[in-house]
Computed example of a mutant assay.
Amino acid sequence: MSEEFEIEFKNKLSAKDYYRLLNYYKAEEGDFFIQENHYFDSTLWELKKMHAGLRIRVLDDTAELTLKTPLNKHLLETTDYLSIIESEDLLLKDQIYFTGHVARKLRELNINPKDMHLIGSLKTKRFEKQTSVGLIVLDQSFYGEQTDFELEFEVHEAQTGEIAFDTFLKKHQLKKNRSENKIVRMINNSLKNKAE
């Protein structure tokens, strides 16, 4: 289990700006990795209402169950690590574990882990570059018929991180265009498709 404070700044990117940044970092095909996020909530959207998110993230050879809850202006991440087999089993059963650190945190929020069910999935092709001021992340995400691009900047300290992020945007002539969390984008797209 891990519990950590997540400080990140996000910015929507056009496809043109996304590929321009990849070119700047001389990204090659072997520099990318794929991650699948499978999101959970109750039928009453209890997590959505509190601006929290719950996901099973699957990578090539590992997986994790993570609950993100608001803390000040950022997020607290509570994670239980899973094997690939465990993640496949949970997704097949449309549930999360009823024990563990994530389940305990949900109960602290007065949410029953047994009420969680899969609400949608999103696949991301990710490029990461560690810099002296933080981790630069360039994501291309796919959900439904939608594809989008975003820049994430993960830092350890909010104030200096925000200054560094703004400096990065200016340096690369990027317009500030705040990006919603992936789960929000996936849910909004799903609800829009159901309404059409």
Rank of each mutant, 00 (worst) to 15 (best):
L44V: 05
S83Y: 04
D41V: 02
H38M: 01
D148H: 04
V137D: 00
L91W: 02
K123L: 06
F40S: 02
E128P: 00
H74C: 10
I7E: 12
A164S: 15
H117T: 14
L174R: 06
V137L: 01
A27W: 05
F127A: 07
T78A: 05
Q159N: 15
I136S: 07
N188L: 04
G120C: 03
K129H: 14
E86P: 09
K123Q: 12
F32Q: 09
E29V: 12
D41E: 05
E6K: 09
E157D: 15
L21E: 08
L122Y: 05
E77Y: 06
N177S: 15
K192C: 01
S132V: 14
K192Q: 15
E36A: 11
K192E: 12
K123T: 14
K170M: 11
T66G: 06
D89L: 08
K73D: 14
E145Y: 12
F153V: 09
K12D: 10
M186F: 09
A15Y: 04
Y39R: 09
H156I: 02
N189K: 04
K105T: 09
I187Y: 07
N11Y: 07
Y143W: 13
T99H: 12
K123C: 08
I187N: 00
D94G: 10
D41I: 09
K26L: 08
R20N: 10
T160E: 15
D17F: 02
K12N: 15
S83P: 09
Y143K: 11
I85W: 07
K12F: 08
K26W: 00
Q95D: 01
A195S: 14
M186C: 02
L191P: 08
K73E: 14
E108D: 15
A103M: 01
E4L: 08
N177E: 13
Q35E: 10
G144R: 14
I119N: 00
L75R: 08
K68D: 02
R126L: 01
T99M: 03
S190V: 00
L54K: 08
E128L: 06
L82Y: 03
H101Y: 01
E157R: 14
D94L: 08
R185T: 06
N23C: 10
K73V: 05
F153M: 11
T99A: 06
L22M: 09
L135H: 01
K26Q: 15
F142T: 12
L67N: 01
R178G: 07
E36M: 03
E152C: 06
R57I: 04
M186Y: 05
L54G: 04
G30F: 04
E36N: 14
W45G: 05
F168P: 11
L191K: 13
R126I: 00
L71R: 15
Q173I: 00
E128D: 05
Y25K: 04
L169H: 06
R185M: 01
T124L: 00
H38S: 14
K10C: 07
L91C: 05
E28L: 07
L106I: 08
R107I: 04
T78R: 11
K12G: 00
S14H: 04
K16Q: 13
I7M: 07
L22S: 10
F153N: 11
T147R: 08
S179H: 07
R57L: 03
H156T: 13
W45N: 14
I111V: 13
T167D: 14
I183K: 06
K26H: 12
R178H: 11
E152V: 01
A63F: 00
D139H: 06
L75F: 12
T147F: 03
L109A: 06
L76H: 10
S87Y: 07
G30S: 13
E157W: 05
T147A: 02
